[in-house]
């Protein structure tokens, strides 16, 4: 399914109790969604430490249990730090939703194949739902059709977390590295202020 409409579907239903954390291609496209509205609970994780966004989300979910934390992570990012899946399920915040954007490539650096890409393995790629269940996630979803994602999104967001979602999307041609939309320390301080505000 297309990345942009996958993100658009979430943005159409997100509320002021939901923080949305994005990285890599999801961050780039989240900033480009139309109309261009920056929500105070949006965290564009750029600059990033690749693989660490789910852990940021875990800390936020534990500190702010009344807000739902929704994380869009890349499959390459997920592979870089798979162990965090067990850290998440050990702490088990019910307000945590991890969505892995699975396109099989490092899109922002020029579409090189990830080690888990079906094209790099001459066969099936990683079975993310099985990995998630094996690491202890109870609420697990997988989507490869946009209509299914759009239809079941309310169920995904209502499930008791921690929730894992695999979203199989097509790589976008000409993908580039997302840039921080403002000075990172100022931006993250504003995000923290918004996170700590009651809604």
């Amino acid at each position: 399914m297309p990345l942009v409409t996958t993100l658009q579907a979430l943005r159409a239903v997100r509320t002021d109790r939901q923080a949305v954390l994005t990285t890599m291609s999801a961050a780039r496209e989240w900033m480009r969604l139309q109309p261009p509205v920056v929500h105070p609970l949006d965290l564009i994780y750029a600059p990033s430490a690749m693989g660490q966004l789910p852990a940021y989300g875990l800390g936020l979910a534990l500190a702010q249990p009344d807000k739902q934390i929704i994380i869009f992570n890349g499959d390459g990012c997920m592979l870089m730090n798979l162990g965090v899946l067990t850290s998440i399920t050990a702490a088990a915040p019910p307000n945590y939703v991890l969505i892995v954007i699975d396109n099989g490539v490092y899109e922002v650096t020029g579409h090189q194949l990830t080690v888990a890409s079906p094209n790099a393995r001459r066969g099936a790629g990683v079975d993310w739902p099985t990995v998630a269940r094996g690491c202890g996630f109870q609420s697990v979803f997988s989507f490869s059709e946009l209509a299914d994602w759009q239809a079941q999104l309310p169920e995904v967001l209502a499930a008791r977390g921690p929730t894992f979602v695999c979203a199989r999307v097509q790589p976008m041609p000409g993908g580039e590295v997302p840039k921080s939309p403002a000075y990172p320390p100022d931006r993250i301080a504003a995000f923290a202020k918004a996170m700590q505000r009651s809604v």
């Binding site: 430490a49 693989g51 660490q52 966004l53 852990a55 940021y56 989300g57 875990l58 800390g59 936020l60 979910a61 534990l62 500190a63 702010q64 730090n81 162990g83 965090v84 067990t86 850290s87 993250i188 995000f191 923290a192 996170m195 700590q196």
Partner: peptide, 18 residues
């Protein structure tokens, strides 16, 4: 945490959340 690099990121999220 499963790996030490995660610890700083978890702590960051906690700090941002107050």
């Amino acid at each position: 945490v499963a790996r030490e690099a995660e610890a700083w990121a978890v702590a960051s999220g906690l700090f941002l959340g107050g």
